[in-house]
Design a protein around this nucleic acid. Structure first.
Length: 552
DNA sequence: CTTGACTGCCC
DNA sequence: ATTCTGC
DNA sequence: GCAGAATGGGCAGTCAAG
């Protein structure tokens, strides 16, 4: 097999990492992409996107941090201690591989079967096929075969590609820009097509072969979901729109795109995985509906008129066996609130109010129902509906501009989400871990506890909410109060108090308090509070019980 | 046969 | 999921 | 306003090891 060498791609990535200029990144990568043939272009895009196959193929590599670490250890011949030290320093497995390989001796320096882009891509493809007994070793052997032929810089990018964390300041966005540059078309044209057909590689090849016009929404093939932006109050929403708007309940369920064409039905998740298999009774209900369509919906579970919490609902996903008992235990229903394709027509560009009208033509029944919505005009009406939603056990409300088209993949202000106000707890930091990537070497991930009589009980971890500056201040302070250094993590004297916000509390054996927080984030550092003043496990229990009352 | 580490994806 | 940062 | 980056908790499946 010959063709373009993988080292070329690795070196381009290195240059992209070194510059902060977007234009430079785009031209560097764009010029490289321009000269690839179809097969190599497709493979390169998939590698850079860490998307070996489109998600709806439901194939996974099943190689992660642990497997890669053992490979790096093996071929670099370094000790665990050394590996660990280098890893904490870089906060990136790829960088770790590069440094250790530079230091160590290559396992087999004489055999140099130079890696090509296609060889790498095809190997990863093959790895996702291995399963069953001995598959771990097969995957490892296939990877070893790549790594023994890789120079340190190639090894670095192999690791980065496999873990999906390139960390070179190039993600889907700039990749698209580079591709548009390479294809010589405006970025907006490319982007429009990618949102409709969310497979950058396939879009690129089709455009390259003059099939731009033919790319449109296709039945039984997922398109990106339209997303919402958060706002914090009914007033903010009312002021922003200042007109009649459509309001719906917001459900804490699983987003589902439902495709029906004749008797073929496919359902896709937000990440575009096909999830039809896990939802047989939903599929059955859909099959009894008339028409050909693509619908947007939320799947939830309601039992005895109560909404089941998300962690229960989640048990319906990724199941291998779905029996009668499970279907009764966690009964599903799909709440439909939008339509993208209806009886032979693309309708996603129509204004929402017309799409809502179209939905009325479908004879929803059984487990598929039309989502409730109503027109609201001011903050008082928004507020009222919001309260109603919470009382029913839902998550909040969605506010949508009736004049807006369905814009796949866009998170704009056409859809606004209003979630219930979060609770907060005052907690104390008891441990801290080093971050990754740009947070390498900084204690940026904090484990915190609440008070249980004279003891401290861990209730969660958080990393987001602080500015870089605050993190650096905490970093220095934490080092001063270290009790024990575990290498990747330090235990500290309980001195620093944080105000932590979260969406809900759940029972959990993850931490010793017996509780865990959902969506924890740091509100602020409470320099003014001493650890004696933090919240107690009783308060945690109280908040938990209050929420539980709404659920079944 | 059971357990625990690992992986990936739902929010 | 949330949040911050740089452009 | 967009794009990129870092990272939370819970779940099921898979595989290797005991």
């Amino acid at each position: 097999m010959n063709g373009r060498y993988f080292i070329e791609l690795a070196e381009i990535c290195e240059k992209i990492k070194e510059t902060t200029s977007k234009l430079e990144k785009i031209s560097k990568l764009g010029n490289f992409l321009k000269n690839l043939n179809d097969e190599e272009l497709s493979a390169t895009i998939r590698l850079l996107n860490s998307d070996i196959l489109p998600p709806w193929y439901n194939k996974e590599i099943q190689v992660g941090y642990s497997t890669l670490s053992s490979i790096i250890l093996e071929i670099s011949g370094s000790s665990k201690e050394e590996f660990f030290k280098v890893y904490v320093k870089h906060g990136d497995l790829g960088e770790t591989a590069e440094e250790l390989l530079k230091k160590g001796k290559a396992l087999n320096p004489l055999v140099q079967d130079k890696l090509t882009i296609l060889k790498v891509y095809k190997t990863l493809l093959k790895i996702s096929e291995y399963s069953g007994e001995g598959s771990y070793q097969s995957k490892k052997n296939a990877l070893l075969n790549l790594f023994v032929n890789a120079s340190p810089i190639e090894a670095k990018y192999l690791v980065k590609i496999i873990t999906g964390e390139l960390r070179i300041g190039l993600s889907e966005g700039l990749l698209e820009e580079s591709l548009a540059y390479a294809l010589g078309i405006p970025l907006t044209n490319l982007r429009e097509k990618v949102l409709i057909l969310p497979d950058l590689s396939e879009v690129a090849i089709r455009i390259k072969n003059g099939k731009y016009e033919e790319i449109d929404l296709e039945l039984l093939r997922p398109t990106s979901f339209m997303l919402a932006e958060p706002m914090s109050s009914p007033e903010e929403i009312a002021n922003y729109f200042n007109k009649e708007i459509i309001a719906e309940y917001k459900y804490d369920g699983i987003r589902a795109q439902i495709h029906k064409k004749d008797n073929k039905i496919r359902i896709f998740s937000r990440r575009l995985d096909e999830i039809s298999f896990y939802l047989p009774e939903v599929v059955e209900s859909i099959s009894s509906l008339k028409g050909v369509f693509i619908l947007d919906s939320e799947i939830i579970s309601i039992k005895n008129d109560k909404v089941l919490p998300f962690n229960i609902l989640q048990r319906r996903l990724r199941r291998k066996n779905i029996d009668k008992k499970l279907i009764e235990e966690i009964p599903l229903r799909a709440i439909v609130y939008d339509v993208l394709f209806y009886n032979g027509k693309q309708v996603y560009k129509l204004p929402l109010r017309e799409r809502k009208e179209l939905l009325k033509n479908i004879d929803f029944k059984d487990r598929i129902e039309l989502g409730f919505f109503k027109i609201v005009r001011n903050s008082a009406e928004i507020s009222k509906l919001f309260e109603e939603s919470l009382n029913k056990g839902f998550e909040g409300i969605m506010i949508k501009d009736p004049d807006s088209p369905y814009t796949p993949g866009k998170r704009g202000k056409a859809w606004i989400k209003l979630k219930k106000e979060f609770d907060t707890l005052d907690v104390v930091i008891v441990a801290a871990e080093y971050g990754h990537g740009k947070r390498a070497g900084i204690l940026s991930d904090y484990t915190f506890a609440v008070k249980d009589n004279n003891e401290l009980k861990v209730i969660g971890k958080a990393y987001s909410g602080l500015t870089d500056e605050e993190m650096e201040i905490l970093d220095r302070k934490l080092r001063d109060i270290t009790i024990e250094d575990l290498g990747y993590k330090i235990i500290v004297k309980p001195e620093i108090v944080l105000e932590v916000a979260f969406d809900s509390i759940q029972i959990s054996d993850r931490h010793d308090s017996g509780f865990a927080l959902r969506f924890p984030r740091i509100k602020r550092i409470r320099w003014d509070k001493s650890p004696h003043e933090i919240d107690t496990i009783e308060k945690v229990r109280e908040i938990y019980e209050r929420k539980k009352a709404i659920f079944a």
